[in-house]
Design a protein around this nucleic acid. Structure first.
Length: 257
DNA sequence: ATGACTGCCTCTGGCAGA
């Protein structure tokens, strides 16, 4: 079972790239972020045509998440991250697919920091940790897949000192991420690439892609029942180099059936 | 380094992204 996470940065602008990627790599589940579309603009029929069921949680202009499943309909279990009734941002969606609980996560960027946006990021991470605790208690395979907007380690970025003042690399956000791992969640790509050097994001600006100035911010976190089944993981890097790409590359894991 | 790119909705320029 292949489960992928892909921040597509606009589902309308990226539809050709997205359909091409689905047909080429045939993921069983695709967790999407930044669809930047309202619910009624979501191109569900396009996915149905190539055999994917879908659920989505959209928002005008920004954010927005979706889960696609090959040959089945994802069974929605949660539509928003609990813990703040005033939070209107579409950043979380969760479903069961073939016995695996899967969440698509678009964690707040948090810039500029310090400031209210960074406070929102840290509060959101606290809520995520609390909700993950409840999922842990299900004692089923759980995969928390998404754009975490956290660079976990020095070896997860092209230069040790790059992005130093950025919300993606602040001690508080890195510590909050480590805290979730400390609860027992497995960072799949860190397991397979302990030395780092594997990127999931390259900025559109300043020739970052051409110079391979990237970093790793898209993560798949696994509960013990999922981690036991983990056999492979990777990044579909070549899709970042195509025409009109997202600034993120698809990131995936393979679980045994 | 002030910016660089890109998508979105449209106040077609301002905002957000990372």
């Amino acid at each position: 079972m292949r489960i992928a996470s892909f921040n597509i940065n606009g589902i309308k602008a990226r539809l050709p790239r997205l359909l091409e990627w689905l047909e080429e790599t045939q993921p069983d589940v695709a967790c999407l972020q930044e669809i930047k579309s309202q619910d009624d603009g979501f191109p569900a029929a396009e996915f149905e045509k190539i055999g994917y069921g879908a659920i989505w949680h959209g928002q005008k202009s920004f954010n927005g998440v979706a889960i696609l499943a090959r040959g089945t309909e994802p069974k929605e279990t949660q539509r928003r991250l609990p813990g703040d009734d005033d939070d209107e941002q579409a950043r979380y969606l969760e479903a069961d697919v073939n016995g695996v609980r899967i969440a698509t996560i678009y964690l707040p960027n948090g810039n500029p920091q310090p400031g209210p946006k960074f406070d929102y990021k840290l509060a959101w991470m606290k809520r995520l940790r609390a909700h993950a605790g409840g999922l842990w208690d299900l004692e089923m395979p759980v995969v928390l897949a998404g754009d975490y907007n956290v660079i976990p380690r020095d070896c997860d970025i092209w230069a040790k000192d790059a992005m130093r003042g950025d919300a993606l690399r602040q001690p508080e956000s890195m510590a909050a991420y480590r805290q979730i791992l400390g609860d027992g969640w497995t960072d799949a790509l860190a397991t397979h690439y302990p030395q780092g050097g594997i990127w999931t994001y390259w900025d559109f600006q300043a020739g970052a892609w051409q110079q391979d100035h990237g970093f790793r911010i898209d993560h798949l976190l696994l509960s013990p029942h999922a981690a036991d089944r983990l056999v492979a993981s990777g990044v579909d890097k070549d899709h970042r180099g195509r025409e009109k790409p997202s600034d993120h590359a698809p990131t995936w894991i393979e679980l045994t059936d």
